[in-house]
């Protein structure tokens, strides 16, 4: 009951959806659209659970007085502020938009830009041309970086053309190889899930 029914459900929905993709019959399309709407209905409930789990984790931090537990109040303040304004008045409310534009957007951009500094230190370690493969990575990265900025064409007028050729040819062939490999992996994993061979999504326990 606890494991068999979910396995049967997974099999039925998986096989059903595959069949709808190969049949243009109106019943088949109705089934596909109905199940698609079911997925859209079920998914938001998962977010509620995720939010509750996050809140519980921070409540536990506060209760146990773990390191930096005081900052958990800031998490709650952020959540409550956005929810109190956004839920009743909607995301188009001017205060909600002000908070989004002046807190979330700048912090999001700054957090990602912070990575530029760490990438620089990672590049120092990665770009030491100690082997043929590392040299290829180094040369390609330098050409792509220079080809993206005007100074690259000032150094050599063909830099951006060479960058584009690299992106369209050897880079694309490597990406195609990866995409084909990943796709074959996804298909085999999906078949394993539908047939009940792969059961990790059921979690532990009985």
């Amino acid at each position: 009951m606890k494991r068999q029914v979910p396995l049967v459900l997974c099999f039925l929905f998986g096989v059903g959806i595959i069949l709808t993709r190969f049949s243009p019959h109106p019943y088949s399309q109705f089934f596909y659209e109905e199940v698609n709407s079911w997925v859209l209905i079920i998914t938001p409930f998962a977010l509620v659970l995720a939010t509750v789990t996050l809140i519980r984790a921070h409540v536990t931090r506060i209760r146990r007085r773990t390191e930096y537990w005081q900052y958990s109040f800031i998490v709650f303040a952020g959540i409550i502020t956005m929810v109190v304004i956004g839920v009743p008045y909607g995301p188009q409310h001017f205060v909600f938009e002000w908070l989004f534009n002046n807190i979330q957007v700048p912090m999001d951009a700054t957090m990602f830009s912070l990575l530029a500094f760490f990438i620089a230190s990672a590049a120092y370690r990665a770009f030491r041309a100690r082997s043929f493969e590392a040299t290829l990575l180094l040369v390609t990265a330098i050409i792509v970086m220079l080809g993206n900025v005007p100074v690259g064409d000032l150094i050599w007028s063909e830099t951006s053309s060479v960058k584009q050729w690299i992106l369209n040819n050897p880079n694309l062939s490597a990406r195609r190889g990866i995409i084909l490999g990943v796709s074959l992996g996804v298909i085999s994993q999906s078949i394993r899930i539908i047939l009940g061979i792969e059961r990790s999504y059921l979690g532990g326990g009985d």
């Binding site: 998914t43 938001p44 977010l47 996050l54 900052y71 998490v75 502020t81 995301p91 909600f96 912090m107």
Partner: peptide, 29 residues
């Protein structure tokens, strides 16, 4: 930094709760 980091988490979670409620939960559930 820790203040900004935790505030970022709170504001982001709050933002996505609102977006999911208005664009996910209300129309689809």
């Amino acid at each position: 930094y820790r203040f900004a980091e935790y505030l970022f988490i709170g504001i982001s979670v709050g933002y996505y709760i609102v977006i999911y409620i208005h664009q996910g939960f209300i129309p689809f559930a």
